[in-house]
Write a protein that binds this DNA or RNA. Structure first.
Ligand code: SF4
Ligand code: SF4
Lengths: 160, 160
DNA sequence: CTAAACGCGGACAATCATTATCCTCGTTAT
DNA sequence: ATAACGAGGATAATGATTGTCCGCGTTTAG
């Protein structure tokens, strides 16, 4: 049981997009290069973020990706959800219903309820942190210098 | 990202063992039959539970498995931990350290801290429910009849 | 003491999810 | 028109999970 690495990559990709000035976009290949990810697979991740309305894409020459919401409105959970989808961590395989030979499945949930509650607790923590709060942390003392270098890289690679 | 089905199976296996009288044991094959799981693989799960000291095994003819703790002392989390192991849901692949070209990895954690907190929240819910609280729920009105049938099955299959 | 019933452990093989590549298409700036 | 980009699907490579097999040690029964 492990979270896809795509979630982490996506978070950092969105953080990069957050450094763009208004109206500018960053080509997908530049992003995957910077993240050292495989370009072809990374496009799939970006498209998932697009479907989830976290980011927007513009096609054509000088196309690329940009945020689709204010950074305060994008939580880590939004990104997780876009990449991992809605299926929950746990899902009953109906063993108990089997054990007890129940006809209808309703109201026989010893574990499902508990696991669902656990999952809600887990997700609620991920909902607390937003792209803008993460960006702030990147601007703290110890990272400031490197973060500025990153921003300059974004300036160079962006278009439009 | 999905939890192993072995966790669910193990929980129900432990619930079965909880129905045993003191000193009695249940052979592994009986358990896997009842759970409709593959016997050979299921033994692996049982052995994980043994290593985690959740259950105990006795070898030899008339051998089998039984609880190793009082049912109030076994949480769903204990079983989860036995099966899934200690590795966390999320683990950084060091992308940010890479992005920012940091030399040492310490104190550069934007996501790790958050994810760890989320995981703690998740696990703490699983720690609330114990085998004995689950067993109580099985004895509630709507399941009572079937649960008694299960107990009789346990009586028949147990040894020693 | 021998054999049979059981758990133990490791070396595989099969299955399934995730990651990665490729190729064709639609869109837009030049 | 063409070149640079994203969209989407088919399909491989990889890796984790699940499942099987076989030989071993231990204990009870005969
Ligand atoms: S108790 Fe809930 S989780 Fe377990 S089998 Fe029944 S419906 Fe599924
Ligand atoms: S910020 Fe934390 S999680 Fe991200 S790369 Fe650095 S150490 Fe790893």
């Amino acid at each position: 049981m492990h979270m896809k690495t795509g979630v982490e990559q996506s978070v950092y990709a969105v953080l990069l997009l957050n450094m763009l000035p208004d109206k500018a976009v960053l080509p997908g290949e530049a992003i995957s290069q910077q993240l050292k990810a495989s370009p072809t697979y990374f496009r799939k991740l970006l498209r998932k973020l697009v479907s989830a309305d976290v980011i927007a894409s513009v096609p054509g020459v000088k196309g690329g990706f940009k945020l689709n919401k204010r950074p305060e409105a994008i939580t880590v959970y939004d990104i997780y959800l876009a990449i991992e989808g809605r299926q929950s961590l746990y899902s009953s395989s109906g063993i108990l219903g089997d054990l007890l030979e129940l006809e209808k499945e309703e109201s026989c949930c010893l574990l499902t309820d508990l696991m669902e509650e656990a999952e809600v607790a887990w997700k609620s923590v991920m909902k607390r942190e937003t792209i803008s709060s993460l960006a702030e942390k990147m601007n703290e003392q110890q990272f400031l210098l490197k973060t500025e270098a990153l921003q300059q890289w974004v300036q160079r690679k962006m278009v439009a």
